[in-house]
Design a protein around this nucleic acid. Structure first.
Lengths: 151, 151
DNA sequence: CCGATTTACAGGTATATGCCTGTTATTGGA
DNA sequence: TCCAATAACAGGCATATACCTGTAAATCGG
């Protein structure tokens, strides 16, 4: 037994996340972005003007946490919010021209880390891991979990 | 393709961590502790008066980040620091009597979530996942990664 | 059409974490 | 022994993330 992470799923996940964060952060640092920020830009680019709520849901993130996280990106002019035409409560998030450029720039560096990670970890194994992690993050899994809880 | 997490190991890991954190946090909330804090108490209990450096290393955590994280626990009287006898630079971390009690209390709730998680996810599968995550967090893996990097 | 409820955010507060910059104590030579 | 280099933290600053409490806009039942 090497410690609590041999037993606790949550603790093991956090440690791996810290480590992975170090590797990806280091690689993307030259752009001035954190890996989390690049992930955010990637998701925004992928979703094409999502509302805050949609984006938060896609990221498995609290809505207000998303709001806080977007602030530095807005301050730096990479992201902007525009009120939705049909629902003035909602705000749509999108990349600015500068945001798109920064995203592309970071994407180059991301490809490098990603490649190195998979070279060290195994491409197939990484795909399986992502699949497992995506399952844990899914609503489907949470529903299954809650069923066990309510038993 | 459901989104970037199908491709990025780091993004997938973060989302799963946020989700898992929600589940474990909810379960342990009645004690007034976060799941991360319970994890911290668990590690401290396991290590028996580690120095800050040793504890940070075991948790794959930055030393100063550890310092910050310990503050609320110290403020609440669950943890205390004592200077090392042989090396006055070092400080040893340990649980107070109250800290041990709180740890045991949270441990009961942890067992419940842990059990529910494994019921929903699969016990064997969870063990494999932890093993994989621990590997990613290990120095061994980082060394392998850096080799690819230096190529 | 109106009031009650719900939805989508904004802000405050608190923890989680990391980097950079001191400050102090140790240690390894010359 | 004294000095330079190193090790172990402490603090400031910044992002990441969550919960709780407003506020404004949309929606729904009567």
């Amino acid at each position: 037994m090497n410690g609590p992470t041999d037993l606790c799923n949550n603790a093991a996940l956090r440690q791996a996340t810290r480590r992975m964060g170090q590797l990806y952060d280091d690689a993307i640092a030259p752009t001035g972005l954190r890996a989390t920020q690049h992930g955010m830009l990637t998701q925004i680019d992928f979703m094409q003007q999502p509302t805050m709520r949609e984006l938060a849901e896609a990221l498995v993130m609290d809505l207000s946490a998303l709001g806080h996280t977007l602030k530095p990106l807005m301050r730096d002019g990479l992201v902007e919010l525009t009120p939705d035409e049909n629902d003035r409560r909602a705000k749509r998030v999108r990349l600015t021209t500068m945001g798109k450029a920064k995203f592309q720039q970071a994407l180059q560096l991301w490809r490098v880390v990603q490649g190195r990670f998979e070279a060290a970890f195994g491409r197939e194994r990484a795909a399986e891991l992502r699949s497992t992690l995506n399952f844990i993050a899914s609503d489907e899994f949470v529903a299954a979990f809650r069923q066990k809880r309510d038993t």
